[in-house]
Computed example of a mutant assay.
Amino acid sequence: MDFTLTKEQQDLKKWARDLAKEKFSEKAYTWVKNKEVPWENARILAEHGLMGMTLPEEDGGQGMTLVEAIIVMEEIAKVCPSTADMFQVGNFGAIRQLAAYGSPELKARVLPQILAGEKLISVAMSEPNAGSATTDLETRARVEGDKVIVNGSKVFNTHGPHNEYYVVWVRFGEDVKSSGAILIERGMPGFVLGKTETHMSGEEHCALYFEDCEVPVGNILVPDNGFKKLFTMFNIERMGNTSRSLALAQAAFDMAVEHAKERHQFGRPLAEFQGIQWKVAEMKMKLEAGRLLLYKAATNADKGAPSPLEASMAKCYINTTAFEVAHEAVQIFGGYGYSTDYPLEYIFRRIRGWMIAGGTPEMLKNKIAEEVFDMRFSQRPPKPKNSEVLS
């Protein structure tokens, strides 16, 4: 078993690192502060063939592997997290559900705009009463002739105020097996955006409201019984979440190491204190272990999607340990790490969000246990017996 990157992958890593430093470093960490979307960087990604790396060539992509996309993601995210978000849109997120399940006509109309870095797309899953419990979706859709009528609402949508397209998870009936997905576009009749809100990390989001929203039937991606299909592709989105979390933790670690070399206290560099050495050693082990889990999940997926078990283990471990690494990096920096004039405090806040988005560590541990035991564990309370109902 070879744990080293191939010559081609090493070359790709260096090329992506050099590109990120040259094109994205100057404005890095300014986009969120200025409440701006890095459209110019999205177009640079597109110009260099980095939007659609993981999509099939027939859909306008490059047909490359998840591992290759993760290699690029890490190098971009370490330099500019906001540009990495654009890379996520073009390779890991809702675009994969559109590419996998959209009709040829729908893909031909929508994908080129996203791959050119001109439009954004996100998955609309979470609802006020259905966060982790996606089987409790209350957003309903019914087919009427050549249209689909959608009613309901969504919350916490990535780039919500700025998206052009939303892959909306719905129910076409009352039963959970009727769950599916529709591509809904900004401006469609009956579709209204809520007020712009801000996460702790500074990212903007908004609620989505559908009141007899009319959508062409051709925009249906998955008509029913869709959870298995949707989560298969969503595990790819989780890999994007995970790789950005790891990359920012690595960036925090690198900053802390350099600071420990240069910063002197009591007449000695911080690096000479055993307490700092132990922190750095722990941080390094966690990063390396996380990277192995991530690369294993992505490698075993080949050009498809990672297994639920391996995706859950990678995301759960990396989200948790990346937060621990960022926390220790702030501690090593002391007051400078806590200052908004330095990027560490942003990294700390941003990493924390990925412990919620895309599946919490608690929910992922439930999934890991199900895979280990080969059993389904319901989180719902047991149904009352007939005698209890009658009484």
Rank of each mutant, 00 (worst) to 15 (best):
T4Y: 04
Q10C: 12
Q10L: 13
L12G: 09
W15Q: 13
D18V: 10
L19Y: 09
E22C: 10
F24S: 08
S25Y: 11
A28T: 03
E40N: 15
R43M: 08
M53A: 04
T54Q: 06
G60C: 07
G60H: 01
M64V: 04
E68A: 09
E74L: 05
A84P: 04
Q97L: 05
A100K: 00
P104G: 13
E105F: 09
A108R: 15
V110L: 03
P112F: 00
I114E: 02
L115C: 15
K119H: 11
V123M: 04
N129Y: 05
G131C: 01
L137G: 12
N157W: 04
H159D: 07
P161D: 03
H162D: 10
H162Y: 10
Y165L: 00
V168S: 00
F172S: 08
E174H: 06
K177H: 08
V192S: 13
L193E: 11
E203M: 14
H205Y: 11
C206F: 05
L208Y: 00
F210T: 02
C213P: 01
V217Q: 12
L221A: 02
F227S: 07
F227H: 11
K228C: 10
M233Y: 07
I236D: 05
G240Q: 04
S245W: 06
A252E: 06
Q265G: 07
P269Y: 04
K279Q: 09
E282W: 09
E282D: 15
A289M: 10
A289H: 11
N300I: 02
A301L: 01
D302A: 14
S307V: 00
P308T: 11
S312A: 12
C316P: 06
T320Y: 00
F323N: 14
F333D: 01
G334T: 13
Y338N: 15
Y342E: 13
F348W: 15
F348V: 14
I351P: 01
I356K: 10
A357K: 13
K365H: 10
A369L: 14
F377E: 12
P381K: 15
P382R: 10
P384W: 06
S391Y: 07
